[in-house]
Design a protein around this nucleic acid. Structure first.
Lengths: 123, 123
DNA sequence: CAGCATCCCTTAAGATACTG
DNA sequence: CAGTATCTTAAGGGATGCTG
């Protein structure tokens, strides 16, 4: 079979690459998911602990984003049988596989903040 | 000076970590920035090329997000002196430093897509 | 070609109050 | 404690049309 005569300039093979990026972006969509994962990466936490650590998040958003993370298999929710009900959240094994993304964000963000500060001082 | 008497349980030293993550999230905020960076990571591109590669983006969003990236020093805009004006966009040296974040997203997204597909087929 | 101006609309997300 | 329900708002983002 002959090649198409109208060969598009650089049909850009990077598109599958962009699709993959988009997939990750979808999973991490919303204002709080990366922060939730970032804090669960340290250790499992109860609902209230999460709300305290992730500053600014309200109960509605917290539970919504946790549910989405659970649906995608990144987070496990465990109800503990205690006097007042307690619920524990933790990263699943699969959830841990996304840590490199969050770690990359953390380390770039760290150096970026330092850079911005040094620019201000240097001025 | 005495320590505060109400010592909070795990005052969570992970908060600076979360702040850093949030900084990166801010810089990459919006629906298209990671895709723009992802496609510029391959090679510099003209405005129209970007609009073609980043499927679905409109001219308004494209120029808006490019401006924000330029302001943050990740992208350089160059006007070329050609018949009909042409503008070229490329990552700055600093822009390249954020590639690890995008690469991590790309590679996680890739395996995630494969995992999801295999789960569907396996069912 | 590159990109701004305008209008419009959906949706993310906050505040508040209530339940098992 | 761990959420849900409802209301409301701000804003992100799309479509269209125009300009240098």
């Amino acid at each position: 079979m002959a090649k198409k005569e109208t060969i598009e300039k650089t049909p850009v093979d990077c598109i599958p690459h962009l699709k993959a990026i988009q997939d990750t972006q979808d999973i991490l969509s919303g204002k709080w998911k990366v922060l939730i994962i970032g804090s669960l990466a340290f250790s499992k936490k109860r609902y209230m602990e999460l709300q305290r650590v992730v500053e600014g998040i309200g109960p509605k958003m917290l539970s919504k984003e946790l549910q989405e993370l659970e649906i995608n298999g990144l987070v496990r929710r465990t109800v503990l049988e205690s006097k007042p009900v307690t619920v524990e959240y933790e990263l699943t094994a699969y959830g841990h596989t996304i840590k490199p993304v969050i770690d990359a964000m953390a380390s770039w963000g760290k150096q970026h903040r330092e850079k911005v500060i040094s620019e201000i001082k240097g001025k």
